[in-house]
Amino acid sequence: MANTFREPAPQATVLAPVTHFNTVPYIRGAVVSLLSQTYPNIRVAVMNDGGSDAPWGELDDIVDPRLSRFQMSRNVGPYFMNHVAAMANPWPYMTIQDSDDWSEPDRISELMNVLNRTELSVVSSATITHIVDNSTEVAKWSRNRRSDGVEDLSDRVTRSPREAAFNGARHQALFKTQFIREMGGYYAGSKVEYDTFIMCIAQLIGELDYCKTPLYHRRIRGESLTKSEGTGMTSNYRAQTRRTLIRYFEEAKRRRLAEDPHIRGYIASSVRDSVSEAEHAQISECTRVMHKALSHAGGRRIVQL
């Protein structure tokens, strides 16, 4: 894949948070794919989300000042962790990388080119899916997958606000950090569905672009959040979360069609109100610690959040 990236400004650093929870066989590949990006200014933050199998042994021999390591005392979920990273991020961009996936070497360069050209806030790309568990239940999650493994969702980006709908979306995108903050962050009090919400909102308000080049490899596993008893696709927990986020989305759509100038404020307040006071306090403390750590070069030290 040709790299046509224009030399970035020195301050255009991208933070890539990687939330690990019991994905030891895959974490090293995820991290190495980020540290091997052709984009020159990247910081990787591996966050162990209270998992029983910490990833640190798999990463111990990686000595790179661009890699920082964080440890949560209990499991809070990937959206909580991505939210903390977004709030703590001292740089203007952030990309999402799941701990069992990996990126093409030019992923960040290509996505940054799109953002620079369009001046929008979010850009996603086509994905190559790899189904680890070939059961019918897992395979149906990738119904948009072509025979060559590519999942192309570009048709959803071109929908008008009136056609916009709350349906599955991939958050493995490049974001402007300020956009995430303006939307109230990356967490609405639940461990599921927020990726669909934030990407559908970005499309609804005209801040999402799409690169049809497959730049991201998504591994579909049977033991993921979408299959577990408590958070799976048929769980009450997921259904309740989805109903809440659909309600927020439909109200945002109504306001968008009415050309309400305060639509972003509505989205942000709805998201923040979904988070408990206790969680807000924990987020604030974790953000303080992470921001301080990210202001220095990374290393082998594991920072407790």
Rank of each mutant, 00 (worst) to 15 (best):
R170G: 07
L174F: 03
R181H: 14
R170D: 12
S160D: 09
M183P: 02
N167T: 06
R170I: 11
L174T: 09
F179V: 05
A188C: 14
M183L: 15
A164L: 07
E163V: 05
Y186I: 07
G184N: 13
G185V: 00
M183F: 12
S160T: 14
S190Q: 15
T177S: 00
R181N: 15
H171G: 10
S190L: 08
E163R: 08
G189W: 10
V192K: 05
F175I: 08
N167F: 02
G185Q: 03
A188K: 08
V192G: 01
E182Q: 15
E182L: 10
Q178M: 04
H171C: 11
F179G: 07
Q178E: 15
L174W: 00
F166M: 04
Q172K: 11
A165Q: 14
V192W: 05
G189A: 08
Y186G: 04
P161E: 04
Y186T: 02
R181D: 15
G184W: 15
G189L: 14
R162I: 06
Q178G: 11
A165W: 10
K191P: 01
T177A: 00
M183E: 12
T177W: 05
A169R: 06
G184T: 11
A173V: 07
F166D: 13
R170Q: 09
A169P: 10
R181P: 01
G184H: 14
A188T: 09
N167Y: 04
S160L: 10
H171A: 13
A165K: 13
Q178K: 13
V192L: 10
G185L: 09
A164V: 05
G185A: 05
A164P: 05
Q172P: 04
F175N: 01
G189F: 09
A165D: 15
E163I: 05
Y186H: 14
Y186V: 02
M183V: 03
Q172F: 00
F166L: 08
E182Y: 12
L174S: 01
H171E: 03
G185D: 03
S160A: 04
F166H: 04
Y187H: 08
S160H: 03
Y187F: 14
R162L: 14
A173I: 02
K191N: 07
M183N: 03
L174C: 10
G168C: 14
R159M: 11
I180Q: 06
G185M: 04
F175C: 05
P161C: 06
Y186F: 07
A188R: 12
P161Q: 05
G168Y: 05
F175W: 12
R159G: 01
H171M: 09
G185C: 08
T177I: 02
E163A: 09
G189V: 07
I180R: 05
S160I: 00
F179T: 04
V192C: 07
R162P: 02
S190I: 07
P161D: 08
N167I: 06
R162H: 06
P161K: 04
G189K: 04
A164D: 14
T177M: 02
L174V: 10
F166E: 04
A173P: 00
A173N: 11
Q172V: 01
G168F: 14
P161G: 02
E182H: 04
E163T: 05
G185I: 06
Y186S: 12
V192F: 10
Q178T: 03
R181G: 07
T177N: 01
A188M: 12
L174M: 11
R170P: 03
V192E: 01
R159D: 13
G168T: 15
A165G: 11
R170H: 11
N167P: 00
